Amino acid sequence: MPAPSASPTKPPTGTTASATPATPATPTPKGAPGAPGGLRGGFGPVALVVAAGVSVQFGAALAVMIMPRAGAAGVVTLRLAAAALVLLAVCRPKLRGYTRADWGTVVAFGVAMAGMNGLFYQAIDRIPLGPAVTLEVLGPLALSVIASRRLVNLLWAGLALGGVVLLSGHGGGGLGFGSLDPLGAAFAVGAGAMWAAYIVFSARTGRRFPQADGLALAMAVAAVISLPLGVAEAGSALLVPSTLALGLGVAVLSSVLPYTLELLALRRLPAPTFAILMSLEPAIAATAGFLVLHQAMSALDALAIALVIAASMGAVRAQRP
């Protein structure tokens, strides 16, 4: 699920990050969005978020295909463990020079990541991908309303929520979620709450750790948390070569690439805008379900997608300079 990053310059020791990401006061490192030689203008961070969404939802579709082999918890373990190994090998994060608050932030980020992934995969093991992501995105939408400092963002959040309500009919047997498995729907809502926590702690981690060090360390924390559950459910099935290969593919598509792109985007986007952009996820999930899992989309789904995209565009245009 959602589903790879450089992060802002680490603030002075003892600095406390707020819940709403802000552009660092220190000079932006070379290669960062908005820096010389980096991504310029407002379109760059938005493109990063959209690309992350495409990657994570197609990764989720692939995960659904391999769940019969390893189960939901097993797929989560494969995804997080493989992603952690890749990121640790590439980033080689330093372990010294950080405060207790820095480590607390990265651990909280890892816990949020493990919870978000674990709950989401339990959801899509019970209900279709489209409704699962639709319910999950309510978490970021709630964050956008709570964190917003401009009344116009409430309008865009409401429009996005209207699209989410319409999209709830995708794979769910009509408007509403009455035909969905109640436990699966509850898992999806829980994943949305953890997604909101992920947005907050990913931004804080990005400000405290250089490059992708914080992401790699948080991914390792998430992998350690998920490992006992995955082993208990899948056992030796996790070691089958073909399953390992598919799990690596899920890890790259759903963790390494999207989390990195999202951390890059969070260096230049405030939390409310980022959260409303996350409302694109149900539309992307419906597309992935159609192309990979052969789940048809109705005219109602298309209308919902249009509303969500309109809300996301409005949120970006309303962003403060």
Rank of each mutant, 00 (worst) to 15 (best):
M1K: 07
P8M: 09
T9W: 02
P11L: 10
G14I: 08
T15D: 02
T15A: 15
T16E: 12
A19R: 13
A22K: 09
A25C: 02
P27R: 05
A35L: 08
G38H: 10
L39E: 07
L39K: 01
R40V: 13
G42H: 08
V46Q: 13
V46N: 09
L48G: 04
L48W: 05
A52Y: 06
A52H: 07
V54G: 02
F58D: 05
A60Y: 01
L62Q: 04
V64M: 09
M67S: 01
P68W: 10
G74A: 04
R79Q: 14
A81P: 00
A82D: 00
V86C: 02
A89K: 01
R96I: 00
Y98Q: 04
R100C: 00
G104C: 07
V106A: 02
G115A: 10
L119W: 07
F120K: 05
F120L: 09
Q122S: 08
G130M: 06
V133N: 06
T134I: 05
L135S: 06
L135Q: 08
E136I: 05
L138M: 14
P140N: 08
P140C: 06
A142H: 07
S144E: 13
S144G: 15
S144Y: 13
V145E: 09
I146L: 15
L151M: 12
L151G: 12
A157F: 07
L166Y: 07
G171P: 12
G173W: 12
G174P: 15
F177P: 01
A188K: 11
V189A: 12
A193F: 14
W195H: 13
A197Y: 01
R208H: 04
L217H: 01
M219L: 09
I225G: 02
L227T: 15
P228K: 03
P228V: 03
V231E: 02
G235S: 10
A237W: 04
L239K: 00
V252H: 01
V252M: 09
L253Q: 01
S255W: 00
P258D: 09
E262L: 10
R267W: 01
T273P: 11
A275S: 15
L277Q: 14
L277H: 13
M278H: 05
E281T: 15
E281F: 11
P282E: 12
A283F: 13
I284N: 02
V292H: 12
H294M: 06
H294T: 13
A304L: 04
I305E: 03
I309T: 10
